[in-house]
Write a protein that binds this DNA or RNA. Structure first.
Lengths: 362, 362
DNA sequence: CTGAAAGCGCTTACAG
DNA sequence: CTGAAAGCGCTTACAG
């Protein structure tokens, strides 16, 4: 069954206004006007075009639109490859808020050393702004920020502080630790086991600074009030690490009255070690985590933790990032800080007294 | 200090090959050749251009490139707004694999009723293919798939089965339940409490089918071997729901020997209810979850669960999606099924015997 | 409402 | 290596 003529408009996929105009039987110009809601068109023409869109599913080529000057309305989001639950929550929240404001998100997971390629891709896509989520190699991200400045492309770093010249919104980890320690000190705790705080990362140093300041209010110092046994165990799996370090603390002759963990997984490991040693939490020892993940409600006892206030972070990110678009670059970086919320649950309580309830099971 | 001449190339942001060529002092054509690695260029010219790229950070406009026929190398990913941990893992895994293959990801979170707008946006961005992650309203997604077919744009649905004409990769939930029940039956369990299986969703029906088939192998039927008390409690928070329903089972005169939960959160709630009732798991009752989330390792006892095998799912997705690109659309949909992996941990064991160890604490 | 034309930023023959 | 030109898919005055 030979067919001579090219297929009628029936099934061919339409990929340009030219083809589409031919299909509807109108001039390209007219079609373009309808597509862009310009005034001065017959209702009948509009209806005809609309029907044709339904029939063909035609969408104008965004690439041509942008060449003609339309904003891309796209934000590049660069997220580090360590995808922790809080980081994913921020990513999801940011994406959703951007979408509500009619911005598309171009998302790339970046490994150390890979940010240059990603940023160049984002720039070639003429994104309106770029957000970074996570903790990056400081030198590397500082270089990216510098490039973006000379490019006059707005940026925002979420979670990492201390990058010179960078706009940032970050959790005030020092304040979080200050809150937690002020509370524990008020509960008469004086000896603290820190689990997982051994690192030169800025975020850990900030936390130690917060602890120091809370201790200072009681005339205590970090060396006299806190101890670490991190060096005794490798940190591969946070839960197992917390369990192992806590076990080491328990085997010690002088168990601190409170174990403070870098994150919830480590804290849950510590809870487990306590249970295995038949120590009752918080009667015998208090345990606190960080991040306030959903699991904190599922442990026995429920875990005291610091909430990252992700919705606040996302809101701040939107408010810092979007107003930069289309305006001259600010000379001074914008930095906003989010205070964590201390969520006190069952795993922390008054410090055990030596002559009161027993520290160790009989 | 009036300035008469326009600023020298010094600080102006360069946004086109024309400006850039002027900056380097070469013809646009030559610059384009260097940018695209064409042969027949003096090393000196290449070096000059490369240096200028370093200096200016110039990136060619991707929109113009594509207009000239370059592939967008972009995949649209549509994810439902119920961002469960496994769904996020799939999103992150897919994004990472695509990136390794030099595809960019355009990601949008979609609410019920919102898929049309998202797909139209993706199409206007001339994506090479579209992936859907999650469970969508069947009628709505069926409509999208139909549109994509007429558009000759490849698609893949991850996690949802039963959409007519759709390419899909999905977890074989029936097989998962079959595995779990075969194991529990071998452990002499004969009475099962199902928690959270009350739903007309296809994924739940599939699971019940799997249970039915495992029971049939022992000449048992769903009505005689399983019970549900879902109707007694509202399901707002899965953990609390699991706890409440399990408590109701415990208060019953005939506690099943195994509680099987729809997901890990519900199972952890059930574990909690058991602990509160001083029932020992698995001595007095076995408990199993679904998804094998990280928390399964953090509970006491550690939770038996079914692993979604996310890496397998992601690999299958890549292998189903990418080969479709640039080829004529296949007439028959591609459907691939991933078998969950039963991970047996401490929360399940032999069924208690009535005349052996006590079912309830004395 | 139509049609011809210019131009967005690129690449790619083509003729020097 | 250069330069002029065409064309990708659009929008937007401009003249009918």
């Amino acid at each position: 069954m030979p067919v001579s003529k090219p297929a009628a408009p029936a099934r061919a996929v339409i990929r340009s206004t030219a083809e589409f105009a031919r299909y509807v039987g109108l001039a390209r110009t007219t079609v373009s006007r309808v597509l862009n809601g310009k005034p001065g068109l017959k209702p009948k023409t509009i209806a005809k075009v609309q029907r044709a869109i339904e029939e063909t599913g035609f969408t104008p080529n965004a690439y041509a639109l942008h060449l003609k000057g339309k904003r891309t309305a796209t934000i590049g989001i660069c997220i580090e490859n360590l995808l922790t639950p809080p980081a994913l929550l921020k990513l999801a929240g940011l994406q959703q808020k951007l979408r509500e404001r009619n911005y598309a998100s171009l998302i790339e997971v970046v490994e150390p050393g890979g940010s240059r390629r990603t940023v160049r891709h984002f720039l070639s896509m003429r994104v309106d702004a770029i957000a970074f989520i996570g903790h990056f190699v400081e030198e590397e991200i500082a270089q990216r920020i510098h490039e973006l400045r000379t490019h006059e492309t707005p940026h925002l770093i979420i979670d990492q502080v201390g990058v010179p010249g960078a706009n940032a919104v970050a959790l005030d980890r020092a304040d979080g630790m200050r809150q937690l320690f002020a509370y524990l000190l008020a509960q008469r705790h004086r000896s603290f086991g820190l689990i997982g705080f051994t690192s030169m990362a800025r975020s850990v140093r900030d936390r130690l600074a917060g602890i120091t300041s809370a201790l200072a209010a009681e005339n205590l110092t970090l060396p006299e009030a806190t101890r670490s046994l991190d060096h005794l165990h490798a940190r591969e799996n946070d839960f197992e690490f917390g369990r192992a370090v806590a076990r080491s603390f328990i085997e010690t002759s002088s168990l601190p009255t409170a174990l403070v963990a870098l994150n919830d997984e480590i804290a849950i490991g510590a809870l487990q070690a306590c249970r295995e040693a038949k120590l009752e939490v918080p009667r015998d020892v208090s345990v606190a985590g960080f991040n306030n993940q959903d699991v904190c409600l599922m442990t026995t006892p429920q875990l005291t933790s610091l909430d990252q206030q992700v919705p606040n972070t996302v809101d701040a990110a939107i408010n810092l990032l979007l107003p930069q678009i289309g305006r001259p670059l600010r000379a001074r970086p914008l930095v906003q800080t989010i205070s964590p919320l201390l969520v006190i649950r069952e795993s922390t309580g008054p410090a055990p007294t030596l002559n009161g309830r027993p520290r160790r099971p009989a």
